[in-house]
Amino acid sequence: MDWNLEGDTRVKPGEAEEGKITAYIESYTSKVPSGFYLAAAIASIAASVSFKIAKKDHAALFVGQWVAPFLILGIYNKQVKLHGSDANVQTR
């Protein structure tokens, strides 16, 4: 492996492609409305608060940690919808 960091080492559009498995998964997950991920995050917050009120601290922490992944998945889902799976595939 060449660790020479001189010059431009960034990946340019069209230089690398997504795998077939990623494209297959994205073809299904992109059909999920973006609001689903936001609703899941809000539901996780509500469930976490409910567990905390019920003095179930471990469950509250566990469910509360789901909020960030749901929001990140929502952002990823939105990016796939707006920009597609691959930078080198232009459908417009």
Rank of each mutant, 00 (worst) to 15 (best):
G7T: 07
F51I: 00
L71A: 07
I21E: 15
R92D: 02
A43D: 01
L5D: 08
Q65H: 10
V67I: 06
F51D: 00
T29A: 03
L73W: 08
L5E: 11
F70M: 12
P33T: 00
A46I: 15
N88T: 01
I72Y: 07
A23N: 07
G64I: 01
E18H: 13
G14N: 07
A59Q: 12
I21N: 12
T91D: 00
Y37T: 00
L73V: 05
S48W: 10
D2W: 13
A41H: 04
V32H: 02
L73S: 06
K12C: 04
F36Q: 00
A41R: 11
V49Y: 03
A23W: 07
T91W: 05
A41W: 05
T9A: 05
R92S: 08
E6Q: 02
A23Y: 02
L71K: 01
V11C: 14
I75G: 11
L5N: 10
T22I: 04
V11R: 07
E15P: 03
V32A: 12
Y76S: 10
D2A: 10
Q79E: 12
T22Q: 12
S27V: 02
G64R: 03
Q79L: 14
I72M: 14
D2C: 02
S85L: 04
N88K: 05
I72A: 15
S34D: 14
D2T: 03
P33W: 06
K55V: 05
E6L: 06
G74W: 11
S50N: 08
R92T: 00
I45R: 01
L5R: 08
